[in-house]
């Protein structure tokens, strides 16, 4: 059914189809960065960090402010100024969001590590609301908007499908981040400590791994990715609001679950799929449900995965089940 619908749309208007796919891929990249944060934290603490989406939106809001107030960038600024400005705001957003996410863990979750499982989960929901209101306090209830810094014009086009600069930049910035993350988790000492802790914190502690520091590091890493996602979101959409993180966070979480929670490659795959689903639903002409229904579709998918294949696309079935 789904495949058929996509195929008909493809045949009817291939240019539109691929243009929409590029948008989906771009959104998927941003989701991937957020989804990775969920998956990293879930992998190590088995905690759904509901506040993660709000770390993302605060990172985005801050980078928008840096772009607007510190660098005063507009669409008319020179390319050099834009590159430097964006690079600096990226660094600031990443540093801020890492610090914020680590603080959230330190203040909110650390004390509850041995509490019943529901306790940190409920705390995470509360944290999310606190962070949203921090955003509301400093940035107000309206959208914070920047100029369109990266032109919407086509960088190149293949067979009538335009690859716009803004999409391209987002994808090109995401790729190295993903590669760096993979390298970090698989090849560094800190990454090995993370994997060991996620498998068995007690055993890891006995092997001389500083579990608290490893968990803090994981939150810092996840927060950093969320901050980067915040900046990319601002570049792509030019507006952001205090309460957008929760929604986007849930969508990203869906992506993480779809791919198999705890699985890094899965999070990326899931994010791309969700990005495409969303773009197709909103962008295609022929019989798409439209943006009014996007959330229902994404959450419907989430429910379906959890009920029918809780281990996700790339996850492994655990021996003892749920």
């Amino acid at each position: 059914m789904l495949a058929l619908w996509l195929l008909i749309n493809l045949v009817k208007d291939p240019t539109e189809f691929f243009s929409v796919a590029v948008i989906g891929l771009t959104n998927g990249s941003v989701y991937a960065l957020i989804a990775l944060g969920y998956t990293l934290v879930y992998g190590i603490l088995q905690l759904i960090n509901f506040a993660h989406g709000d770390v993302f939106s605060l990172g985005g809001l801050l980078s928008a402010t840096v772009i607007l107030d510190a660098f005063d960038l507009t669409a008319a600024s020179s390319a050099v100024a834009i590159v430097i400005g964006v690079a600096v705001s990226l660094l600031i957003a990443v540093a801020f969001s890492s610090a914020l996410n680590t603080t959230v863990e330190l203040v909110g979750y650390r004390r509850l590590r041995n509490a019943p499982r529901l306790a940190p989960l409920i705390t995470a929901v509360g944290m999310s609301f606190i962070l949203q209101n921090v955003g509301l306090y400093f940035w107000g209830p309206n959208y914070t908007s920047t100029d369109n810094l990266i032109p919407n014009s086509a960088a190149f086009s293949i067979g009538g499908v335009d690859f716009q600069w803004d999409n391209l930049v987002v994808i090109l910035l995401t790729m190295p981040l993903l590669l760096a993350l993979t390298w970090l988790v698989t090849s560094t000492r800190q990454g090995k400590a993370m994997r060991a802790t996620s498998q068995d914190p007690e055993a890891a502690a006995m092997m001389g791994i500083n579990v608290n520091r490893t968990i803090s590091f994981t939150f810092a890493l996840a927060g950093g990715l969320a901050g980067a996602a915040g900046l990319l979101y601002v570049l792509q959409f030019t507006t952001i609001r205090f309460d957008q993180g929760f929604q986007l966070g849930l969508i990203a979480f869906t992506a993480a679950v779809l791919g198999g929670i705890g699985n890094l490659a899965g999070a990326v795959l899931g994010a791309v799929i969700i990005g495409l689903i969303e773009a197709f639903n909103e962008g295609l002409e022929w019989h798409a449900a439209g943006s009014d229904w996007t959330r229902s579709i994404v959450f419907g998918l989430l429910i379906a995965i959890l009920v029918f294949r809780p281990e996700g696309l790339l996850g492994e079935r655990t021996p003892e089940g749920a």
Partner: peptide, 17 residues
Amino acid sequence: PKYAFGVYGAIIVAMML
């Protein structure tokens, strides 16, 4: 009232902790 949900969030976190 604008920060109502911030208050509720803070209550939730404080109670759990």
